[in-house]
């Protein structure tokens, strides 16, 4: 069964099993192994990708359900050799330890910022409520997102407040 979809800006037309999940196709067929599987049941969020602008567990979506859709994986964040501001902030804030939750965590945060460039801490926590991390206690991850938000605010806007 042929699956036509767009992953990270590139159109694909591939043969995929009807029982294959999106994560299987991304990892096995497209070789995009940045997306991780940590539980296979939507509890850990390591497999999070963005489908048409929304964060979704790629372990709980059938590959063929994404026909015609635009998918973004962690591999899409770096553009023309330049890291995404979230990636930079994760590095600068020490938000990465073992790195296994990182791709999913980044994609959840990215989806949040795409829809809401100015989230509160509460909204950040809720955006990653479905992303488990055993290394960091989330503290530095939340700080990293807060920093991106702070830096993305127009300087003039900041000035007005101060």
């Amino acid at each position: 069964m042929i699956l036509d979809f767009n992953v990270n800006g590139r159109d694909y037309s591939i043969e995929a099993d009807a029982r294959a999940r999106l994560i299987d196709v991304l990892r096995e067929d497209l070789g995009l192994t940045g997306t991780k599987e940590g539980c296979g049941e939507g509890e850990c969020g390591a497999c999070t990708v963005i489908i048409d602008g929304l964060a979704v567990n790629s372990c709980l979506v059938m590959a063929h359900q994404t026909r015609g859709k635009r998918i973004l994986t962690v591999e899409s964040l770096k553009q023309d050799g330049e890291l995404d501001s979230l990636q930079k902030s994760f590095i600068n804030n020490g938000a990465v330890q073992c790195g296994y939750c990182t791709p999913g965590m980044l994609m959840s945060c990215k989806a949040l910022l795409m829809r809401n460039p100015n989230p509160t801490e509460h909204e950040i926590r809720e955006a990653i409520e479905g992303n488990l991390c055993r290394c960091t206690g989330y503290v530095k991850i939340i700080n990293a997102v807060k920093e991106v938000v702070k830096e993305s605010k127009a300087p003039s806007e900041e000035d007005h407040h101060e």
Binding site: L32, T33, T35, K36, V74, E75, L77, G94, G99, T102
Partner: peptide, 21 residues
């Protein structure tokens, strides 16, 4: 000094290869 982890670049880009990869 709080310098970043040696392989953090590979981790934020998803390029690092765990055994599963």
């Amino acid at each position: 000094k709080s310098v970043p982890m040696h392989d953090v670049m590979d981790k934020v880009t998803g390029e690092i290869k765990y055994v599963g990869d």
